[in-house]
């Protein structure tokens, strides 16, 4: 794991190393200015690749989509700095738990070549659906505008966003949170059958649990175990607190 960084003013934290999700949202509540995020440096990658050299036939290095972050570029530059190691850098065109699912697919492969081939086959099958409590955070990071989301500044609308094929898109906008939750479940069900799925949340464990209880049984019947994931510092910088959603691979 090569962590991205989150910056509160001059202070820099490695996501999941120096700051977990709860600590991050505590800090966010008290911050006078919104944090920003940054990709790891090529040096960060080179250091990790150096450590892995000699451990196997090569490295498959899977990262946040190039349209969303500079991470994959840093990884490519870092890989060139390491001599005598095959590093296969993959632009996942997605983010968060779907990358974990791709890692799982890679880990279950018999060879580097098979891992690369199986992971690449699943890249177009990744989806994320996110219900945000406000568009404020993702808008600050420049990932989507209010005009693109067709969400004005006046009404307190709940945006439902999706990530597919590397791009963030507005899927829907709903007047209240209680109506938005059934809506994201409906959007998920439209994409059945699934191969892997995780319910993600930022400081909304009870709602995530209720969603899990609703979709868990039907997915289990279909042979899919539902994971849960907490939204960490870097993703949380863009979603803000109380985000809820799904990261999944369609079958």
């Amino acid at each position: 794991m090569v962590p991205l960084k989150v910056l509160f003013g001059q202070e820099s934290f490695r996501d999941g190393v120096d700051l977990d999700g709860d600590q991050f949202f505590d800090r966010l509540r008290q911050a006078s200015k919104l944090p920003t995020t940054s990709a790891p440096s090529p040096g960060d990658f080179a250091a990790v690749y150096e450590r892995l050299a000699g451990d196997g036939e090569g490295v498959i290095s899977i990262h946040i989509g190039g349209q969303l972050s500079g991470t994959v570029e840093a990884a490519r530059v870092g890989a060139q700095a390491v001599e005598g190691l095959r590093v296969h850098v993959i632009d996942s065109r997605s983010t968060t738990m779907t990358i974990a699912f791709l890692c799982l697919v890679a880990a279950q492969s018999a060879s580097l070549a098979e891992a690369v081939q199986r992971v690449e086959a699943r890249i177009p099958k990744q989806r994320i659906i996110a219900l945000l409590d406000t568009l404020r955070y993702i808008e600050m990071g420049g990932r989507i505008s209010r005009a693109q989301a067709m969400i004005g500044t006046m009404l307190d609308l709940k945006p439902v966003l999706g990530v597919a094929d590397g791009e963030i898109k507005a899927l829907d906008r709903v007047r209240t949170r209680s109506r938005a939750i059934p809506r994201i479940i409906e959007l998920l069900r439209d994409d059945y059958p699934l191969e892997h799925v995780a319910v993600m949340h930022a400081q909304a464990p009870e709602e995530a649990q209720r969603i899990l209880e609703e979709i868990g049984p039907e997915l289990k019947r279909d042979g899919v175990e539902v994971a849960t994931g907490q939204i960490g510092a870097v993703l949380g910088t863009h979603t803000g607190p109380r985000a809820l959603g799904f990261a999944y691979l369609t079958r």
């Binding site: 209010r146 005009a147 067709m150 969400i151 004005g152 006046m154 009404l155 906008r173």
Partner: peptide, 11 residues
Amino acid sequence: SGLVDIFKGLG
């Protein structure tokens, strides 16, 4: 004016 802004903001 407010209602006009709301409609415009919503697209």
